Computed example of a mutant assay.
Amino acid sequence: MYLKQLAALVATAVLVSGCQTTNPYTGEQEVNKTAKYAGVGALAGAVIGGIADGGDGALKGAAIGGAAGGGYGYYTDRQEAKLRAELQNTGVQVHRQGDIIQLVMPSNITFDSSKSDIKADFYPVLGSVAKVFKEYNKNLIQVVGHTDSSGNDKINQPLSQARADSVAQYLIAQQVPQTRITAYGKGASMPIADNSTKAGRAANRRVEINLLPPPAKTRSKG
């Protein structure tokens, strides 16, 4: 009986982990991240529970593992959806890699050329970002400034740092806790496009906000 229950559980977990949904913003089919994490967690929990306590242990372990696996993934899913909804048609790109969400803010909508003062038109957008950060307050927030390769490091490095600092200070002014935020300038050291073209240089002039998972101890209390 135990083997049949475990087999059914494993099969269900595998099916759930492979569920696909349609991204409402891109129309693309993608794996449901929450289901994926929950399915993997259920499998792990079943194996560990089965070793520890036979059939009942496997079933209990699957339930616990599924909840734990889906917990932070579900949180990140909701946060990603809220950010995409808030940032539609703003020019800010939202990317997701596992538990990390990245916002890419091109300089043409955030700063004037060679300046680090946030454009007035961008304040409402950044205010929407701050609102989501306060609602979803488990992440660590890493603000990173980048430039193209024009000029030299003596110009690019401090400019990228100043732009990252401007964004970070605005978030803090909007009551996002300073303890969650770090700001770095990377100058021209991390291009995402070809600096030999005008379009490539424009893409490289950007500020990124990386939303990072909290430390394990903090996450386990959530």
Results as ranks from 00 to 15, higher is better:
Gly71Tyr: 12
Ile192Val: 04
Thr21Val: 15
Asn23Pro: 12
Ala203Gly: 09
Gln175Ile: 03
Ala120Thr: 04
Asp148Ile: 01
Ala42Thr: 01
Tyr74Asn: 10
Ala81Tyr: 01
Pro106Ala: 01
Ser196Ile: 01
Ala199Phe: 08
Arg78Asp: 10
Arg96Glu: 11
Ile209His: 02
Tyr136Glu: 11
Ser113Pro: 09
Asp117Lys: 06
Lys154Val: 07
Gln29Gly: 14
Ala193Ser: 11
Lys119His: 05
Thr26Val: 03
Ile51Glu: 13
Val94Cys: 04
Leu59Tyr: 00
Ala62Arg: 03
Ala42Trp: 04
Gly185His: 00
Ala52Gln: 08
Gln93Leu: 12
Asp112Trp: 02
Leu6Met: 13
Ser113Lys: 09
Gly200Glu: 08
Ala7Asp: 11
Gly18Gln: 14
Tyr72Asp: 09
Lys33Val: 12
Met105Glu: 06
Asp77Ala: 00
Val132Tyr: 02
Ile172Asn: 08
Ala42Asn: 07
Pro191Asn: 01
Ala202Ile: 02
Tyr25Val: 04
Gly185Val: 04
Gly73Gln: 04
Gln178Pro: 10
Gln20Met: 15
Gly49Asn: 05
Ser107Ile: 01
Asp56Met: 15
Gly70Asn: 03
Ile141Ser: 09
Gly50Phe: 02
Lys82Cys: 11
Ala58Ser: 08
Met190Asp: 14
Arg78Tyr: 05
Asp99Ile: 02
Pro124Met: 06
Tyr25Gln: 10
Gln161Glu: 13
Val104Phe: 02
Tyr184Asp: 12
Lys221Arg: 11
Ala46Gly: 07
Leu140Pro: 10
Thr26Ser: 15
Ala52Lys: 03
Gly55Val: 01
Leu140Asp: 13
Lys115Gln: 13
Lys60Ala: 14
Gly55Lys: 05
Ala68Ser: 12
Lys115Ser: 12
Tyr123Leu: 15
Lys115His: 07
Tyr25Lys: 06
Leu126Lys: 03
Pro214Asp: 11
Val10Lys: 07
Lys217Asn: 15
Arg206Asp: 06
Leu43Phe: 06
Arg84Thr: 02
Ser166Val: 02
Leu211Trp: 02
Gln175His: 14
Arg84Asn: 05
Glu135Ala: 11
